[in-house]
């Protein structure tokens, strides 16, 4: 009996550590969403939507696939939304993003999207511009206004 208990502890401890780690990871994951104007009916498979949003945000493309002119909105540098968007949608780190904007500036004279820190202003801009899009923290959304909709959601650690 003592032998079994000893073995059980050997199994239990790593299991507990693993559980704690996994649970911790799940508990720390936050949810974000890319939202667009309700009048923008673009919809596709999630991978395609992410690529489209990435290209529009990076100004590699200028229009949504439904020909609506895109108006990307960036979030405050260093904010949870901006970090999550950069890592999960753009798949770039800060240095790569800076390199990208430097290249864009020299190729076409375009600049990075405007940064907006206040969520309420983001919602107003999304609601007033048909091609606008931005990332928001779903927890801080409250009720999404009728003139905006979620394009897709994603989680970030």
């Amino acid at each position: 009996m003592k032998h079994i208990t000893h073995n059980g502890l050997h199994l239990l401890l790593p299991a507990l550590v693993l559980f704690t780690f996994l649970f911790g990871q799940i508990a720390e994951a936050a949810d974000f969403a890319v939202i667009v104007n309700a009048g923008n009916d673009y919809q596709a498979a999630e991978t395609e939507m992410k690529t489209t949003v990435k290209r529009l945000f990076l100004k590699e493309a200028g229009s949504w696939p439904n020909n609506i002119d895109a108006e990307p909105i960036d979030r405050a540098q260093g904010s949870a939304e901006q970090q999550a968007f950069m890592s999960q949608v753009l798949n770039l780190d800060a240095a790569a993003l800076a390199r990208h904007w430097m290249a864009v500036k020299q190729k076409t004279g375009q600049t990075a999207p405007r940064e907006v820190s206040a969520g309420s202003i983001v919602l107003k801009l999304i609601g007033s511009k048909k091609g606008a899009f931005a990332v928001v923290d779903t927890a801080s959304l409250g009720g999404l206004p009728g003139n905006a909709r979620i394009l897709f959601q994603f989680s970030a650690p």
Partner: peptide, 16 residues
Amino acid sequence: TRKLAEHEERLAGVEN
């Protein structure tokens, strides 16, 4: 409180 927080956030944005 929520509206106040929103307005403070917006004000902070405008101030920035």
